[in-house]
Design a binder for these strands. Sequence first.
DNA 1: TTCTATGGTGACCAGGTGGTCACTCTAGAA
DNA 2: TTCTAGAGTGACCACCTGGTCACCATAGAA
Lengths: 215, 215
Amino acid sequence: MRSKTFENLAPEKQERVLDTAVEEFAQHGFHQASVNRMVKQLGIAKGSLFKYFGSKEGLFQHVFEHAVDLFKGPLKAARNAEGDTFDRLRLSLMAGLEFVQQHPRLYRIYLKVLFQENVPFREPFLQQVRGYSAKFLRPLLEDGMRRGELRADLDLDMAVFLIDGLFDRLLQSLTVPEVHPALHGLSQGDARQRIDQLMDFIRRALAANNGEQHA
Amino acid sequence: MRSKTFENLAPEKQERVLDTAVEEFAQHGFHQASVNRMVKQLGIAKGSLFKYFGSKEGLFQHVFEHAVDLFKGPLKAARNAEGDTFDRLRLSLMAGLEFVQQHPRLYRIYLKVLFQENVPFREPFLQQVRGYSAKFLRPLLEDGMRRGELRADLDLDMAVFLIDGLFDRLLQSLTVPEVHPALHGLSQGDARQRIDQLMDFIRRALAANNGEQHA
DNA sequence: TTCTATGGTGACCAGGTGGTCACTCTAGAA
DNA sequence: TTCTAGAGTGACCACCTGGTCACCATAGAA
């Protein structure tokens, strides 16, 4: 529980606390993160942090709510975009790219939570983040089928799996060097080129007319 | 360092120790795994375990070497397979599926290591496992291009990324419920159907003739 | 019957953990 | 000039961690 005390703090102090917590959780995950280390880094007493958030879990929850808030923004912009299905898919991937580039630490926290059991708030946290494919990707693809831009025999579950998986994997590769070393640390321009190549794959796999309308 | 003492033990005891360690590391990852818990589960004294492996790291290394050994087997079988490029890709995915179904805990350890920094032996461990795409996938695709089964304008890096990513993601979905809930806990038959659908996607995206030779 | 080599033991250690709480300090109200 | 509300403090707590080591048990050699 975030107490009133924390909200009364000067905004810049709130930010400093949040920033330090994000850094610590991104580096070490929930269990290995150390409250002592954070407090030392911040130069405040341990008691203060516990007055603010009640517990380590409370602090983590605050970080998590902050992350979900930041994540909602780019998503809305992509949802209302114009263009055909593939243009809109591309835009949503670009939105993901931008989020990961601006908040790499939050994305790293997400990945750690995903593959680590016993993390508090894991289920609700993942459910909210994954609302992405449920509330956004799927309707977009359904719409694409209605418009005849996608193959009529497409299995929707698998199409969602394909796109969601490839998008996530691309962002992972850009964030975690070991996932796919060749794709790590690309420049802005190179990253865009990779996105174009990826969209070309997806078009060939899903489009109604073998994806050759762009020749 | 695994000491001579451990190798002198009765094989069934060695197996029991290994099995317990695999379970603990799969559930909790390296840092959260507890030597005390393992020792309690095994019903032996803590000192014994340290006589065998010297340290928690030593025990982890033993588990890791065991995992790499098991992983090498199915890979060799897939490498020498007959058929066209897509048949061989399919076989290698089937090999991966079989490995994950027989050793889900080892795959969970791999995923935890991949997304957790500060784990001992992380780099050499991942390097060995990822030799998969370097030494197997890439030559297979190069061969496919020489044979003219793949589009001539294909970017090899991206093709490797695509296949590696989709294969890994499918196995992840089958292992970790939260990755893609719709694909978790499938029966043997359903899993094969998903593999066929996935291969269809890949064929459409990569094949020289728009992947329609199977009509 | 000694001696020795080897597996097995668990109380003990230093150090880190999340969490507590009686206390101080200070700005502003009365 | 008092009084008070609330931010800030850090020594302290119980607990858990990986790791140690003096000691014990026993099988087989001498």
